[in-house]
Design a protein around this nucleic acid. Structure first.
Length: 336
DNA sequence: AAACGCGGCAACCGCGGACGC
DNA sequence: GGCGTCCGCGGTTGCCGCGTT
């Protein structure tokens, strides 16, 4: 169980690799192949530890590495596999030819994790963040400030903040409603199994006027109005004017297909996303689409060996055990 | 033009499993 | 079975470039 002391040895170079070092490493591996990383540096004439050589080769110099931005397909694949494997980057990387675990890990940490959080999903569980009610008192307290604190009249700034907070509270409530509805097996056209109807959601949506840029507000003022915690794992400060888009919307059109989390033993959850196409172009009111079972969503999934992604089998067209709603496109994106 | 902040990414660190003796 | 070594993985760090002030 002893640990390799390789990188602690004195005199070994650390830090960025030079082109000369890269060349030596590539030449050596071309001639002798991979393996025996501990012995490789001396044989290749490198003043590096074997571990550093291995990392450099596997993460950067390997000829089959695909560089450049991740495609939408790759993004979807990572999301899907992460919901199955969690942070098992090497396992995810095996499904993405040319991509290294390190690259995928970085992409996740810098892009996808944020995107999921913005959409209201917990990036670890891929479940909707549901502690909306924990933050509701703060939101409503701010939104319902009818009497000014310390008997000072509300100035323009405060009024703007109040209106903003009210809209935010409504939107979070809406999201909560939609997620609650999504946790039920849907009837054909309504969410009424939880006492929530299409009409209720629609009325709520239409009570929210389209937001224009409000010059009296800035992000620091909003952030200083108390901490809005949206989710239990990560708090997201609100940034006006992109506040609304941060609630649920990805920054780019984005369709997220949730999947079984076999390691957690959880059922798939439902995703409800509205698109700009769901707004009435004439008056910007929201037209709630009827829940539909998307072909991909009408999938019956079975797992013969929990924890093993390859044991997951799906079929289409039958009665699904886990019906899912799938609306495509961003919600309330670019409303200004 | 300089200073500053932030995001992205390459590289490092430390742990644990696999394997051989 | 115990110990040592090697390797691979995931988390973290720190540098660098770019945008903003």
């Amino acid at each position: 169980m002893g640990r390799s002391p390789c990188c602690d040895e004195n005199g070994l170079k650390k830090g960025p690799w030079t082109p000369e070092e890269d060349e030596k490493l590539v030449d050596h591996i071309k001639k002798h192949g991979q393996g025996s990383w501990r012995a490789l540096p001396k044989l290749a004439g490198l003043n590096r530890c074997g571990k550093s050589c291995r990392l450099r080769w596997t993460n950067y110099l390997r000829p089959d590495i695909k560089r450049g931005k991740f495609s939408q397909d790759e993004e979807q694949t990572i999301l899907h596999l992460h919901s199955i494997h969690g942070n098992k980057w090497s396992a995810i990387a095996t499904h993405l030819p040319g991509r290294t675990d390190n690259e995928i890990k970085n992409f996740w940490n810098t892009h996808l994790k944020k995107k999921l959080i913005q959409m209201g999903f917990d990036p670890m569980t891929h479940q909707p963040i549901t502690d909306f009610f924990a933050s509701l008192p703060q939101l409503m307290a701010l939104a319902n400030l009818r009497e000014p604190m310390e008997h000072h009249p509300l100035d323009e700034h405060a009024m703007g903040l109040q209106a903003e907070a009210l809209q935010l509270a409504k939107l979070q409530y809406l999201q909560c409603l939609l997620q609650s509805a999504a946790s039920l097996i849907p009837s054909a056209n309504s969410y009424d199994q939880n006492g929530i109807t299409d009409l209720e959601v629609l009325n709520l949506l239409n009570s929210i006027p389209p937001i224009k840029e409000n010059p009296v507000l800035n992000s620091s003022e909003l952030e200083n109005q108390g901490s809005y915690h949206f989710g239990n794992a990560t708090s997201q400060p609100l940034h006006h004017p992109s506040l609304l888009s941060q609630l649920s919307a990805p920054q780019v059109p984005f369709s997220y297909q949730p999947s079984l989390n076999t390691e957690m033993g959880q059922a798939p959850f439902l995703t409800t996303i509205l698109s700009q196409g769901d707004r009435n172009p004439s008056d910007s009111s929201w037209v709630l689409p009827s829940p539909t079972l998307a072909p991909q969503a009408a999938t019956e999934t079975s797992i013969s060996n929990p924890g093993d992604a390859s044991s997951i089998t799906s079929s289409y067209g039958g009665v699904t055990s886990w019906p899912e709603l799938l609306f495509e496109g961003p919600i309330m994106h670019d409303i200004s």
